[in-house]
């Protein structure tokens, strides 16, 4: 009985803690758009972040998408034991999985790790070495200075995902040809049948939401971190967990709203 009561109180505390964090996160996001930094300075910050966050991630995105597309094609082919199922299903299934989930969601989880830990550790380091205080003392809105350029840079993230979609399907095609599961013509036919353009729109809407989460949640964890250098590492881990959770929940909600 007492244990139950204790658990209940504990869970209430934890829940209130989460609520408070969400509240603080919203306040932070609002502050990011206030008192903008001088444009001549902001412009360079944005270009630097595009280079770091988007351009610097293309390699891993290209690598992942080709292989994931390939695996989807192989899995579909291997599961088609019934000879009545048309062979173009391989191309069709690859296209659908890549465009709907693998390119936008799977890649974003990887980015939550790669880009997210970079953001948390770079902002967190600035916090523990008082660089953020230095900005504030000078009268700079440090939230705007640090986070706004990351949000803008991540607006280019859908371009990276478009590449991921294209290469994912290409990876499927290559695996299909190499494994001789169906002919290239059948695969390409599969890619084209029953194409619903809204699926692509849906994917890009998701991608934009994920981009915002990947830019802001790790920033939040870095900006409000306490402690020293060791805690920067811990904050990066926590931030990865929460960014992934947020992406998965947002994915569910958006799918329900847009396709359900």
């Amino acid at each position: 009985m007492l244990i139950l009561l204790f658990l209940r109180l504990e869970s209430q505390n934890v829940f209130m803690g989460y609520l408070a964090s969400i509240g603080n996160y919203s306040i932070m996001v609002k502050e990011v758009f206030k008192k903008p930094t001088k444009w001549s300075i902001m412009k360079n910050l944005i270009l630097k972040e595009i280079d770091e966050l988007i351009y610097g991630s293309l390699g891993i995105i290209i690598f992942i998408s080709i292989f994931i597309g390939g695996v989807v094609a192989i899995q579909t082919a291997l599961n088609m034991t019934n000879p009545l199922i048309p062979k173009n299903l391989i191309g069709f299934a690859t296209r659908q999985s890549v465009i709907l989930e693998f390119a936008p969601t799977f890649t974003s989880i990887i980015m939550a790790g790669k880009v997210g830990s970079y953001i948390t550790s770079s902002i967190g380091t600035m916090r523990v070495t008082e660089q953020i205080d230095a900005l504030e003392v000078m009268g700079v809105n440090s939230l705007n200075y640090l986070i706004f350029p990351k949000i803008i840079a991540m607006l280019f993230y859908p371009f990276a995902i478009a590449i991921a979609m294209y290469l994912g399907v290409l990876g499927g095609l290559i695996a299909n040809v190499m494994g001789e599961h169906s002919t290239t013509a059948e695969f390409i036919e599969g890619i084209q049948i029953d194409f619903i353009p809204f699926h692509v729109t849906y994917s890009f809407i998701k991608t934009l939401v994920f981009a915002f989460l990947i830019a802001t949640i790790p920033s939040f964890h870095g900006y409000y971190m306490k402690g020293g250098a060791l805690d920067v590492g811990k904050a990066s881990t926590t931030s990865f967990v929460w960014t992934s959770v947020a992406i998965i929940i947002a994915n569910f909600v958006l799918t329900q709203l847009l396709l359900g």
Binding site: T37, K38, S40, I41, T125, T129, E130, Q131, D133, A134, M138, G139, V140
Partner: peptide
């Protein structure tokens, strides 16, 4: 600041110029 709090992505010159450039 106690630990100097220099911006580590900037050179010495850029650090010192920062407030001028900003304001």
């Amino acid at each position: 600041f106690q630990g100097s709090a220099l911006f580590d992505s900037m050179t010495v010159e850029e650090n010192v110029m920062f407030p001028l450039d900003m304001f």
